[in-house]
Nucleic acid binder design. Sequence first.
DNA 1: CGACTTTGACCCGCGC
DNA 2: GCGCGGGTCAAAGTCG
Length: 127
Amino acid sequence: MVSNSQLFNQIQSTSYGEHGKELQEKKKKKRERSPRYAFRTRSQVDILDDGYRWRKYGQKAVKNNKFPRNYYRCTHGGCSVKKQVQRLTEDEGVVVTTYEGVHTHPIQKSSDNFEQILQQLQIYRSL
DNA sequence: CGACTTTGACCCGCGC
DNA sequence: GCGCGGGTCAAAGTCG
């Protein structure tokens, strides 16, 4: 059994190895706090309940994907964590969830989905 | 009644 | 300077 905080630590160990590094360095001059952690999940629903509350603040269509991308934000006081959910065009059943920022609060609800999501994350790390 | 979605508009960085 | 792609805002509407 692993605790939620430990699982979240594992999220934080997953760094974004793509062009995000360049982007992060660029943003470092402006904003130092914007770590990004991404993982893929097999799900038919965009909204994965990971124990936090998310408020949707945008929806944009990306050129390479025929599915729109959803933007969520953590609805806690002072918690400015962002989340980005995108479905793959080639695989409708696969969604890419990108977390931006760090949660300072503990999990509000006890959700079994969270553990499952973290398991998916570990799968992503193996890729 | 309050919290959250929806949806178009706006903004910003970049390449031509 | 303009158009494009991507990210965010904010007003109105919806649901419990």
